[in-house]
């Protein structure tokens, strides 16, 4: 196959690498030809038997409408992996939050330093499920309080000189609802004794607030620690109040 001939060729007595123009009148025949490339237009997949609609669409140039995408190998990943849900990690964090004593040997900072979104969301949704009985509006309130309460805590923490990200606060506040979930069934049992249930509620709120505060309120706050612990404590009072009736 010859390339289509331009009227340019390497002259024999010029230095190699130089192009010179030659007149096309005295030159020999410079014609060439291009072999037809072996290309098939594939506009619509290989249907052996095509309906009239398909032919019609293809004629009009809309054959691509009927194309089916081939499966990406990435789509075959399991859903949990796709959504970054790490169940083992979540289980470890849940245990960290439920047992906030430093003596138990959990590496609790994981909850703060390695925030995920699905664990806290699951915890918050579970908490709203158990609060749901007889009050449908509670779910939206719990999620609203979670998001905006965390935002308030985050802003206060930043303003008071801490160094946290909003995602971390959201995660820690969400996970720390677990103690309230734990005391909820107990509240059902002792509901008739007012003093016992009050003590139990206080215990639950302190447990949750201690769990969250010990993670969020680091050493960098120095003397200002109470200023951040107090709003966290109030936030869990709100959550418990939503549980007992929105």
């Amino acid at each position: 196959m010859q390339p289509p001939g331009p009227a340019v060729r390497l002259h024999s007595n010029s230095p190699p690498g130089d192009f010179t123009f030659v007149s096309s009148t005295e030159a020999e025949d410079l014609t060439g030809s291009i072999a037809t490339p072996d290309v098939k237009l594939n506009l619509g997949g290989d249907f052996t038997k095509e309906s009239t609609a398909t032919t019609f669409l293809r004629q009009r140039g809309y054959g691509w409408l009927l194309e089916v995408e081939e499966n990406d190998p990435e789509d075959n990943k399991p859903l949990l992996e796709e959504l970054d849900i790490d169940l083992k990690d979540i289980y470890y964090k849940i245990r960290c939050v439920l047992m906030p004593m430093p003596s138990l040997g959990f590496n609790r900072q994981v909850v703060r330093d390695n925030p995920d979104f699905w664990g806290p969301l699951a915890v918050v949704l579970f908490f709203s499920m158990i609060s749901l009985y007889g009050q449908f509006r509670v779910v939206s309130w719990i999620i609203t309080i979670w998001i905006f309460g965390s935002l308030t805590i985050f802003l206060l923490a930043r303003v008071l000189g801490g160094d946290v990200a909003y995602g971390q606060v959201l995660g820690v506040i969400g996970y720390s609802l677990l103690p309230l979930i734990v005391i909820a069934p107990a509240l059902l049992v002792v509901g008739s004794f007012e003093i016992v249930s009050t003590i139990l509620k206080l215990f639950g709120v302190f447990w949750a607030a201690y769990s969250a505060a010990s993670l969020l309120v680091g050493e960098e706050f120095k003397t200002k620690k109470p200023l951040l612990i107090y709003p966290i404590f109030l936030l869990y009072i709100y959550f418990l109040s939503l549980y007992t009736g929105v």
Partner: peptide, 24 residues
């Protein structure tokens, strides 16, 4: 915020029912 919490406590203990709306 504290007053919100105290009001909620008061509403709960007095059994206030708000028809259109929530205690919170």
């Amino acid at each position: 915020f504290t007053m919100v919490a105290i009001l909620l406590h008061g509403m709960k203990s007095s059994g206030t029912v708000i028809v259109e709306g929530t205690l919170m």
